[in-house]
Structures are given as C-alpha cells and as structure tokens.
C-alpha cells in the first residue's frame, strides 16, 4: 500500500469539503462540509501515524474528533440564532461586515 493513496484520498475529501463550504447557502450544509474537511485531516493524521509506527497521530485524530464535536455544537447554536433572528439560514444574508 502506498502512503499516497491515503493522502490523496484525504486531499480529495478536503477539496470537496471546501467546495461545499463555498457553494452552499444553507448553514447546516456548510457545517456538514466542515466536518468533511476535519475528517480528511484525520485520515492524514492516522495514515502518517501508521507510516511511522507511532500512536501520536491517532491521539491527535481523537483530539480532532472531540474538537469537531464542540465545533458542531457551537456552530449549530449560531445557526439556530441566525435562524431565529432572520427566519432564514442563508448565510449570504448574514452580511453585517459589509464595508
């Protein structure tokens, strides 16, 4: 097995996730795409951990999973707040930073 087959799979999932973040209107879908990105990072960590025969990569993959859980929790709370205030979760409407 080549190391690259895992890394390139991760890269592909990462880019698909980026596309999802950029192209989706729905806040929940954006969050899902972010999960995809985080997973691709985990594949990298685990693959390199297997490559080096060291568990450190796995430990960090677990940390990433925990952080992802926290991220989804807070992210969904924000999406709900936007929904409650605007009756829509189209993140294009949240443009208070407009210059």
């Amino acid at each position: 097995m080549y190391l690259n087959q895992f890394l390139i799979l991760a890269a592909a999932l990462f880019c698909i996730g980026v596309y999802g973040v950029l192209a989706r209107r729905n806040g929940v879908l954006v969050l899902m795409s972010i999960e995809l990105i985080l997973n691709s990072v985990n594949i990298n960590l685990v693959a390199l951990s297997a490559m080096n025969g060291d568990v450190t990569g796995q430990v960090f993959a677990l940390f990433v999973i925990a952080v992802a859980a926290a991220e989804v929790g807070v992210g969904l709370a924000i999406v709900l707040l936007i929904y409650r205030n605007r009756r829509s979760i189209d993140i294009a409407e949240a443009n208070l930073l407009k210059g």
Binding site: V21, L22, I91, A92, A94, N95, L97, K98
Partner: peptide, 17 residues
C-alpha cells in the same frame, strides 16, 4: 478594494482558500 468588503463570509472564504 472597498467593493470586496461585501460582508459575505463565503466570499471571504473563497478569497482565503
């Protein structure tokens, strides 16, 4: 440059990536 500051997070993300 001012026009770039649309307030659209997505556009910022696009620029960033």
């Amino acid at each position: 440059l001012r026009r770039i500051q649309t307030g659209q997070i997505r556009q910022y993300a696009t620029l960033m990536f």
